[in-house]
Design a protein around this nucleic acid. Sequence first.
DNA 1: TCAAAAGTGTTAAAAATACACCCATGG
DNA 2: CCATGGGTGTATTTTTAACACTTTTGA
Lengths: 229, 229
Amino acid sequence: MKFKYRYPRPALTVDCVVFGLDDKDLKVLLIQRARKPFRGRWALPGGFVHVEESLEDAARRELEEETGLRNVYLEQLYTFGEPDRDPRERVVTVAYYALVNLRDHHVRAATDAREAAWFAAPDVPALAFDHEKIVESAAARLKEKVRCQPIGFELLPPKFTLTQLQRLYEKVLGRPLDKRNFRKKIQSMDFLEALDEMQKDVSHRAARLYRFDKRKYGQATTKGFNLGI
Amino acid sequence: MKFKYRYPRPALTVDCVVFGLDDKDLKVLLIQRARKPFRGRWALPGGFVHVEESLEDAARRELEEETGLRNVYLEQLYTFGEPDRDPRERVVTVAYYALVNLRDHHVRAATDAREAAWFAAPDVPALAFDHEKIVESAAARLKEKVRCQPIGFELLPPKFTLTQLQRLYEKVLGRPLDKRNFRKKIQSMDFLEALDEMQKDVSHRAARLYRFDKRKYGQATTKGFNLGI
DNA sequence: TCAAAAGTGTTAAAAATACACCCATGG
DNA sequence: CCATGGGTGTATTTTTAACACTTTTGA
């Protein structure tokens, strides 16, 4: 107990809502708590902010420690600070959300976690603390974001088909999109580059592969647009 | 020094970017610091979070203590936590922004502040800490918000003219809008109620007064819309 | 009678939506 | 030859954008 202050201080943590996309679903990465409180419950990866690191650094550090993920796209979501959100003492948490593609990033459970696993976004189990509320906010934010910024880069493999991209948008928005209108729209946005390459090993007509034009994608990210879907 | 912890903890503060509208400009409320560091400099109203109060409660308490404002519309903006943002020690601040109408809310300087004053949003002086950055984020957020949620309720007097409302949008967006298109659009949104009352004491044709339909305004706030301007 | 702001519609361009069939491939 | 997903265009409706003059009022 070496650190003394005139007034009591809330503890400060970060938590990460990590979204990933596989062939079927939009998923959320959870860890199983190895300690009290809520031992054995699923929760968001996260932990205490060190006094010399930035909030984002703390989020990246905890994410790597607990799940092995690194170099992910990360953005601050919201800060949750209700006095009773942690039964032990006052804890304020700065929530981040991350987008990763499940092919390139592999997950392993580590410190403080018995296990790490992906859950389809609509069937997340009961979570520790107020983490369910945090996941809901993150899903809502992602839904907003997708309408005015491209997000595919972070969730898809480097080369992908238009159908994969459409499925991503459908999962995030939670509703079906018209194939032709989607293609028209997304191609007019001008950050997609059609490759001379086709899908392999599929038991039906092979789809053309695309990749993002990094430069134009970045512009679209900073300037924003209206996807109108 | 009664409060002791195993690990060092960042201090946690809240800061408020308060926007107000007068006849001319969109303004930001600043206080002049009475203490070190940055004594004499202008800064955002704000202060330490007490250990038993929520973040929003802390923001409201500080706002009232330092400026006398209460019952304002308040929303969380972003949490700023770079390790060097305060020269004394590590301080993480949860920033909020508020919208108030200058007719109904009067400001007085109080504790910790020599003075409180309104500055036109484009000519905010050099501020303490990273508060300039916080003001910029808040202005950017307000600009986004205005496109998909009504904000007039909070910034205008209860009865107002369409020209006042248009001026508000022009100030927030930083560009002129077409009068006829604006009126068409805003009236089709259906949360305005035309009154049988006219402006008084103006030296030109009196404009019709409007007020917000609280119910529909609330729906528009929660559901969102696309103002398309 | 002048100044100052209020109020009012139309047209053209662009964007959004709805919609159905043929194609290529592997099993 | 069949099942599976890939790929494509047009017509309609809706939305946006551009634009200028007449009215009212008080000074």
